[in-house]
Design a binder for these strands. Sequence first.
DNA 1: GTTTGTATCAAACGATCGTTTTAATGTCAA
DNA 2: TTGACATTAAAACGATCGTTTGATACAAAC
Lengths: 217, 217
Amino acid sequence: MAQKNKNDVTKERLLNEAEGLFAQKGYDAVSVREITKAANCNLAAVNYHFGNKQNLYLEVFRARWVPRAGLLQEHFRKSLAAQGSPSPTAVAKALAEAFLVGPLSDEERHRHHQLIVRELGQPTEAFELVADQVMRPFFKELADMLRPVMPEGLGEKRLMLNILSIFGMVLYFNFARAAVTRIAGYEYDTAFKARLVEHIVEFSLKGLGGAEKEEMR
Amino acid sequence: MAQKNKNDVTKERLLNEAEGLFAQKGYDAVSVREITKAANCNLAAVNYHFGNKQNLYLEVFRARWVPRAGLLQEHFRKSLAAQGSPSPTAVAKALAEAFLVGPLSDEERHRHHQLIVRELGQPTEAFELVADQVMRPFFKELADMLRPVMPEGLGEKRLMLNILSIFGMVLYFNFARAAVTRIAGYEYDTAFKARLVEHIVEFSLKGLGGAEKEEMR
DNA sequence: GTTTGTATCAAACGATCGTTTTAATGTCAA
DNA sequence: TTGACATTAAAACGATCGTTTGATACAAAC
């Protein structure tokens, strides 16, 4: 058991450092030597614990990304339940708040979104993992939640487009943080994040068709 | 002069192939050997014509990306002028149409957005180039255009957030094309792009505050 | 016809890549 | 104490990286 413990320490440090570096630089720009150096362990540790570099990358998603996505969904559900009925406004607000403020630290949230945006632009095996275990189930949950409270004319395709769009906004403002602050001259502080949540909710409401019905509720 | 001509042929092939590969795989995942092989020329050609790999990357932006962005802006301006007054609806529609359908081929548009999204997430010298020569001037132009026709209460910061958001949507649906089609099961065909333009316009109108005033015009 | 400058080529440079090997640890069960 | 097993360590593997070199081809200038 003491063995397992030591094992886990090195393995977890590797996962942590690997995730940070993969998120920051992308898979190809990070070397195994860089990861093991950051994790303060031997070069061969990656191949010993994970087989090879690619499997370490996948394990980052299995052991870090997916559980964290679970945390975010949990936060969203609780936040939504506290607001009462799942109106389009309430859903948009709970989503934006969970993913832009939510339970994660700034650094963790940045990691989270950097990793997934890289996969969106260039899907690998990790994307299939995330799509199966996180995205498709969660999107279905959201669609089931919104369908009854949306305008009648809105088809399934438009509904999915709207859900995808909210995530697009969230991803964009997290991922492109460095660029947005440089272009617009904003500080990415608490006040800005609050403004951003408000903005995304407002921006999404028209698409969700709930603006007229819900915003005065 | 005949020399210059031969020179240009190789140089341009290098720029074309380099752009495609950088867009598809990212800077670090593409080797100089890969580029020169695709361009059907000698390995040393990159260093001869561009000095080094990084400068070839920058030249891709200088010689390809920036001019293409000019094309897009031109298309946008003409399309907007044809619609008459620059109402929020007209601006959103012209923007979405220019960047999602517009004058570019599907492949060219994909390249264009892949390159810039990589820079948004991890800005390099190329981002400064694009920010100075393309983004800041164009965003200013849009802000000046929209300011008079927006609701009075809307401040400069909200105005910029809305402009940034429209581009976020456009970038997202171009960049994450592969992922969106896998998740939502869409074909990325002409019909889908038309639906996407409509969707983005609709989605943006609430943010632009022009929905109530303009959509029946 | 010789010189000059441009472009391309094969070949090689040292550095770094992911991975493997082999030996040296430390820990627990027998 | 001994043997089995899990983990770490140093060193080396071949492959590939970006870049440089020196030779060659060829058109224009003198």
